[in-house]
């Protein structure tokens, strides 16, 4: 895309994007740490993760200020407008993802008194969700709508993983009522991971809107794919 006549505008947009990506980086790391703290029952790591969520919140505020400034001063249109609108939503999603990661770390702290016997496939799910987030951020940084599409498709597998884990935890609870607290904590962690993946999906959908101008949030995958491929011609 050619440069804006007003160079400052380009700089501001680049800066904003950088800011969002660094926020994404923090979120990605927070997810990893949160899951790790659970698996390792690492109190210190959990506390650190909760503490670091503040940085994510601060970045959200900073991004909001920048978008507001750009709206007022540049009155963006078309692609720029979609970008700004998208950023507003993406930032909210990222902040929520940060909160959810902090929630997982809090789960870790609670689970220290009720250590779970079994983590079910939390480790796998954690890796998969992290991968989703990582893909989303890559797609965002490159404007790669195909990758974003893959994230959206893969979200279903996370849902499946979550449901499987939930059922497994349910059987633990039935088998041994003493495990109930630990299992509930674990199932909440799994729920948070599933929600994080949902937010990653939202971001990917937003990216497609930013890049292509099609709102695919509430259409099914095939229709979305069609819309996008129709664009390709």
């Amino acid at each position: 895309m050619p440069q804006h006549t007003i160079k400052r505008f380009d700089e501001e947009l680049d800066k904003l994007k950088e800011l969002v990506l660094s926020m994404g980086g923090l979120v990605e790391r927070a997810i990893g740490h949160a899951v790790k703290s659970m698996l390792d029952q690492d109190e210190a790591l959990a506390k650190k993760t909760i503490e670091r969520d503040k940085a994510i919140n601060a970045l959200e505020v900073q991004c909001d200020e920048m978008t507001r400034d750009i709206l007022v001063r540049r009155q963006p249109a078309a692609g720029d407008l979609r970008f700004i609108m998208g950023i507003i939503k993406v930032v909210t999603d990222l902040e929520r993802m940060g909160d959810l990661s902090a929630g997982i770390a809090e789960g870790t702290l609670r689970s220290l008194e009720h250590p779970p016997k079994e983590f079910s496939n939390l480790s796998t799910m954690g890796k998969k969700v992290q991968k989703q987030v990582n893909r989303t951020l890559n797609a965002f940084s490159r404007g790669d709508t195909e990758l974003a599409m893959r994230v959206i498709e893969k979200d279903e597998r996370i849902d499946v993983l979550y449901k499987r884990m939930y059922r497994e935890l349910l059987t633990y609870m039935i088998e041994d009522p003493r495990d109930i607290t630990a299992s509930i904590i674990l199932s909440n962690v799994a729920k948070n991971l599933e929600r994080i993946s949902d937010h990653a999906t939202n971001i990917s959908e937003m990216l497609i809107y930013i890049e292509r101008g099609h709102d695919i949030r509430h259409v099914d995958h095939e229709a979305a794919a069609k819309l996008l491929s129709g664009e390709e011609i």
């Binding site: 895309m1 050619p2 440069q3 804006h4 006549t5 007003i6 505008f9 540049r74 963006p76 249109a77 078309a78 692609g79 720029d80 407008l81 979609r82 101008g213």
Partner: peptide
């Protein structure tokens, strides 16, 4: 036209990327 123009030239013009 102002949110998702079809043509690149239109986009460039209304987003101030002209010339």
């Amino acid at each position: 036209i102002f949110t998702q123009p079809e043509k690149q030239q239109t986009e460039d013009y209304i987003t101030g990327r002209f010339g």
